[in-house]
Simulated scan of single mutants.
Amino acid sequence: MTSLPTRTRTRLRKRAAGERGGRAAVAAAGAAAGATAGATAVAVALAGALLSGCGIKPTSAVEAGAPATVSVPVGPETAFVYFLSPEGRLMPAARRSTLPMPASEVLYRLLRGPTDEDRAAGLHTELPPVDTVAGASWGVETIDPATMRVRLYFPVGPLSWPARRQLVCTVAHAARPGQDTEVVLTGPDGDLDAERCRL
């Protein structure tokens, strides 16, 4: 058998020792990683147990979207009349009854003006109050399937634009909710041109 030179045998021994050291380091790292993973698993399990004990179920993250909105259920016994905000914008105010209200009744609720609750919310009207006019009469008639006439006890020519919008939107939504409706305002001084509600 041929023997290797002394210098070659020395290099081989150093290489083998290096390989054994590398394997030992890898094994130690694996053991450490396993210990860390085990500790993490224990921590997660412990957190879950604590949450369950408090009545809170662990859950994944939920992405937030737009702000939540609250919808108020409205039945056929609820109608809306339109008053004006301090800035002059149309604002609906609910009026409820035990039975569905015809458009003429909703108009009367508008002409009676804001309630104390409406006024506390800053609402007002630019229409003449019905209770202050002797012998006042009003009504809602159908001219054709898409046009309504509102008969009033006061001249309609001098009405402000916000006052006309109060009448038009209240009657349009009461008579044909959700549909495109024209409304003609009629007073002792004649008719105004048909208008649509534009909120």
Rank of each mutant, 00 (worst) to 15 (best):
G53K: 01
S71H: 13
V70R: 14
G53L: 06
A61V: 13
T59E: 07
L51C: 02
V70D: 15
C54P: 04
V74H: 01
A66E: 04
T59N: 08
T59W: 05
V42W: 09
V74E: 04
V70P: 10
S71M: 12
P67T: 07
A41L: 06
I56E: 07
A49K: 12
S52M: 06
A45I: 13
A47E: 08
V74S: 05
A64H: 10
A47H: 13
G55W: 06
T69P: 00
G75T: 04
L51E: 08
V62I: 12
L46G: 03
V62N: 06
K57H: 00
A68H: 15
P67N: 11
S52I: 04
T78Q: 03
A61F: 10
G53C: 05
K57Y: 00
T59C: 05
I56L: 03
L46I: 03
P58H: 01
P73Q: 09
P76W: 07
G75I: 04
G48W: 12
A68T: 15
G48T: 13
V74R: 01
G75A: 06
G48H: 14
A47F: 10
V72S: 10
E63R: 13
A64K: 01
G75S: 09
A61P: 09
C54S: 10
G48M: 08
G53W: 01
T59L: 01
G55T: 09
S60P: 04
A49N: 14
A61I: 07
